[in-house]
Design a protein around this nucleic acid. Structure first.
Length: 305
DNA sequence: GTAAAGACTTGGCAACCAAC
DNA sequence: GTTGGTTGCCAAGTCTTTAC
């Protein structure tokens, strides 16, 4: 059993290791090591909590470390957004330059670079996130998304074909893990998955803007049966209702898999800078939240361990 | 009931990129 | 140079819908 002093030292050592790794840009190498460290600290804190020996100073230190790491995580995201913005601006300027120069014909005749020609998928991505409980747009919906996307396109390279949209949704369902989730947690039943999505949405609360995803319409045409939530009222749905026999571990894995789907849809996998840090921080989500006595302390809302 | 057309899934390929 | 991951795309097969 580690002492409270040792636990505090572990927390600070973990934070230091994480920051050093970031600074040296060798985080991939340290990923497994940090994972193990986070897990070790988590176990020690859970054990202390269980025995009632967790000191308030340790709690507060954990909260402060957690708050700093959350802040770091937000900064990484902001940096990612800024980089993408700069990249887009640079690409646009380069394109304009090439179009106005003698190179334009050469460029136009050159074969398309498939690897770099990423689709203008913003609107499809947004629709997917708004209907993630049942991400199957109808033909008309796909056409509408295409029309909006192509109307905003700055040049022909940003215009989408209908077939590209169809394939994008097919690939996104498969590659985001949605199809695997359907098989694993809903036994291939899309209506069941929609119910799970509604339960998760109820659990998370907030709005589409704060969550950045929505289960979608509660009554979707084309499903084998109308979801039970359509009759019972979606607010009544919880994971516990849907999986009365399931262990907390199962539900926790389900939530984590769902979060992964959302994350994969929100940004392309190549752009998921700092995923590993979120992965490590997510360890905290399985800890019982028995720190309600600290709710008066604002920093404790970010308690990660 | 049946054929045709469309939508979708699955498996795979090629190009690209980054890490080793 | 090799390997593994990501992305866009294609082909074959399955399923569903529609017209006759």
């Amino acid at each position: 059993m580690r002492s409270q002093n040792e636990l505090c030292m572990d927390l600070l050592a973990f934070e230091d290791m994480l920051l050093s790794s970031l600074a040296s840009r060798t985080h991939e190498v340290h990923h497994a090591q940090m994972h193990a460290a986070a897990e070790r600290i988590r176990s020690a804190i859970v054990e202390s909590e269980r025995l009632g020996t967790l000191a308030p100073t340790t709690r507060h230190l954990g909260a402060r470390v957690g708050q700093r790491l959350q802040r770091l995580s937000h900064l990484l995201r902001a940096e990612q957004r800024e980089t993408m913005l700069m990249r887009t601006t640079t690409q646009n300027e380069l394109r304009e330059l090439l179009q106005s120069s003698s190179l334009s014909l050469e460029v136009a005749d050159a074969p398309q670079d498939k690897g770099d020609a990423s689709l203008n998928a913003g609107r499809m991505r947004a629709w997917y996130l708004k209907n993630i409980g049942h991400p199957f747009p109808s033909r008309n919906t796909k056409k509408a998304i295409l029309a909006e996307t192509n109307a905003e396109a700055k040049d022909s390279s940003q215009c989408l074909q209908y077939n590209q949209a169809v394939l994008w949704f097919i690939n996104m369902r498969r590659r985001s893990g949605w199809t695997t989730f359907l098989r694993s947690y809903a036994k291939g039943d899309k209506a069941m998955l929609l119910e799970i999505a509604w339960a998760l949405q109820n659990e998370q609360g907030g709005t589409h803007e704060s969550r950045q995803w929505s289960a979608g319409p509660k009554d979707v045409d084309g499903l084998g049966r109308r979801p039970r939530c359509a009759q019972a009222g979606v607010a009544a749905y919880t994971l516990r209702n849907l999986f009365p026999e399931a262990s907390e571990r199962f539900l926790s894995e389900l939530r984590a898999d769902w979060a992964n789907i959302i994350e994969r849809v929100k940004v392309g996998a190549k752009d998921r800078i700092g995923d590993w840090i979120h992965d490590i921080l997510r360890l905290s989500e399985s800890i019982p939240s028995s720190h309600s006595d600290l709710s008066s302390h604002p920093a404790d809302s970010a308690w990660p361990f």
